[in-house]
Every structure is written in C-alpha cells, then in structure tokens.
Design a protein around this nucleic acid. Structure first.
Lengths: 197, 197
DNA sequence: GTCTATAGCTGGATAGAC
DNA sequence: GTCTATCCAGCTATAGAC
C-alpha cells in the first residue's frame, strides 16, 4: 500500500480510538512505522490529514447512499436497511461524528463539503418520501409534513450512534435495533391505513 | 463577584466561543484579569474548571426542567414551552453540547453525573407521556410505543441545536421554530383523535 | 488571595542528508 | 520518498514573594 494511504488508514484508526485531540502526528507516524518527517512529506499538516479522511468518507458515503436508495423492495424494509447501513458507516468514521461541530466549523473546506452532502441526503430522502406518498404507501401529506418526516428520519440516523455512546449504551446490534424501533415508530405515524399489515 | 465565580463565568464564555481545546488556562486568566498562578490557586487544572461548569449546568438544568414539567396548561403548549427552554439552556452551555462525547467519555465523574441526569430526564418525560395517555390527550399506546415517543422527543430536544449549527443554519428564533415544528409533527402522530382541534 | 517568574514538557513543523 | 535532528511556540502547572 502507498504510504499516503497507510497514513490515512492508521490515522482513522487512532482518531476513532482516542479522538483527533489526543492523537498527535508523532503517534500517527509511529503507528504507521514511518518517521514524523516523512508524514509531513505526504501531508502539509494534521488538519490536512483530517480533511483527506473526510473527503474519502464523503465519497464512500455518497456511493453507499445512492446504492441504498436505488434498491426498492418493501419501503419499510428499505428504511430499515438504510438505517443499518448508515449506522455502520457512522461507526466506521465515528471520530467524525463525535467531533462534528468542531471539525465542520473549524475548517471551511470541510464545512462546504459537509453542507453539500447534508443537502444531497435530505433531498434524496425527500424524493423517496414523495414517491412513497404518490404510490399510496404513505398517507397523503402536504409539503411541510413530508419535510418534517424526512428531516426527522435523517436526524435520527445521523445522531443515533452518538446518542447511544453518550447514553452509556454499547454500540452493538441491540443498540442499533433500538434505533430501528424508533425509525419504525416514525414510519408508522405516516403509513397510509391501507398499506398496514 | 468571587474570583472563582468569575473564572467560571469567563471560562464558559470562552469555551462557548472557541471550544475547550483552543481555550487555554492563560486565556481564561487574561480574560478574567487575573494571573495564571491565581487561576491555579482556585482550580487544580483545566479539567476541574470544565467539571465545575458541568456541575453548575446540571444543577441549573434540574431546577429548570422540574419547573417546566410541573406547570400544566395545554399539553401541546407545554411541550412547546419545554422545547424552547431546553434550546435556550443548550445554547447557554453550547460548548458542552458540541463536545458531548469527548467530555462525557473523557471524565468519569462527568460521565456519572451526565448519565444520572439523562435518565432522570427520560423518566420525567416518560411519566408525562403516561399521564397524557391516561387523561386521553394522547391515543392509547403500549409501553414500547410510549417509550419510543418519549425518547424521540428527548432525542430531538437534545440534538436540535447541534443539528442547526452543523447544518449551517443560524441558531435563532426561526431555527428553534423549525425544531418545534418537528416536535409538533411527533406529537400529532400520537394525539388521540378526540383531542384534536 | 494574588502576583511574577519560570520550569518542564509536548507537539507541530522544518532543514538538510541520503 | 524517507530519514535524523532539531527548532520553536505554546501550554500546564508550580515556586515563592508579597
């Protein structure tokens, strides 16, 4: 593997374990078995490493979400599968979710990318909701109701892992299942009577 | 004002503005117009300052939430007022909400206090939901539905300000109003038909 | 209680040889 | 591309006078 990729891989691992604050460039270099000087040959500074991880994360995420939403079995199943995928994704880059405000507000480039991605996700969920209303799976809703449902669903998926962590619950299948139960509760609230089992 | 209180006041202001990471004990001392040495006379270290702020925050919060939930006008209004109060509270201690995972997971004493407070809030909301079901304001629900509704409501109130911030929306009345709209959406989902206007 | 002065350390980042 | 060596800034925390 290329040195640069190895630095990223190791940095992500350490950031997830101990947070960007406590992980120094020296730690990363040591764990990657290279010299500090070499690390600085590949990256301008620590911030650049974080940004690079973010860009890769964003690309991974876009591909993943597109794949999720293009599949279309039963809408309830799809929602559940989507929730599960998003949690796995969030867990893989958990340091970013933990430090979201600091990282997004601290680096204008990250902020710009993050906002674009945020809007894309909301729009994707929004059109999914529109489709489901049109198909009669969801009950008739006006624009503001649709947006409320879409945003709540996204909001839940976005923060659930963080909530589990600070609530002292382990991030395991049971915890994810609890999140799915909440997203089902949301879904039930907007199901059309005719689509209920 | 006592020097100790002044340190706390200034530290909270700076933490909210720039985050605990970038604010040093020297900054706090300078802003409080005292010497670094004097700061260390009053606090063992920086962590102790953060913890002290947290303890005061917790006390403030308990009092505030108890007051909110003991008032009882129309349940919908009460929910709205509660949401508003919680957002104002979260904003006042916004650094803590931004750095929640790091602060909670990094200091065992903070973690313990936070968990106790988290559970107390969930329980408070839970009994409020029970009451509202019994009174017929909310539709009949079993235990798991009640818990889902209570937890979603709390979850929303807890992360809303954070969500606004990272979404690039200003934390102003309009943003809070958007949050209230989502909590209303949740409430509508569980209102009993007879209680609807 | 408050100050000045400073020890002691850590970590980001660079220079220059290979 | 990679290393060694090192500089420098900035921060925490303490010592000791007042």
């Amino acid at each position: 593997m290329k040195t640069k990729d190895e630095i990223i891989r190791v940095a992500l691992k350490l950031f997830n374990r101990r947070g960007t604050r406590r992980v120094t460039t020296n730690h990363i270099a040591a764990e990657a078995s290279i010299s500090p000087g070499n690390l600085y040959y590949h990256f301008r500074n620590k911030e650049a490493i974080i940004r690079d991880i973010f860009v890769r994360m964003d690309e991974t995420g876009r591909g993943m979400f597109a794949a999720i939403f293009s599949k279309s079995p039963d809408p309830a199943e799809r929602m559940e599968a989507a929730f599960r995928s998003i949690q796995a994704f969030n867990r893989r880059f958990i340091f970013f979710k933990r430090e979201l405000p600091a990282l997004v507000m601290g680096d204008p480039k990250v902020k710009k990318l993050y906002l674009a991605s945020h809007r894309a996700h909301l729009a994707m969920i929004g059109s999914l909701v529109d489709e489901s209303v049109e198909s009669g799976y969801l009950k008739p809703m006006d624009g503001s109701e649709r947006r409320a449902f879409a945003e709540l669903s996204w909001f839940l998926a976005l923060y659930w892992i963080n909530y589990l962590e600070v609530s002292g619950e382990p991030i395991d299948d049971r915890g994810i299942q609890r999140g799915i139960a909440l997203s089902r509760f949301l879904l039930e609230a907007v199901r059309s009577p005719s689509s209920r089992g």
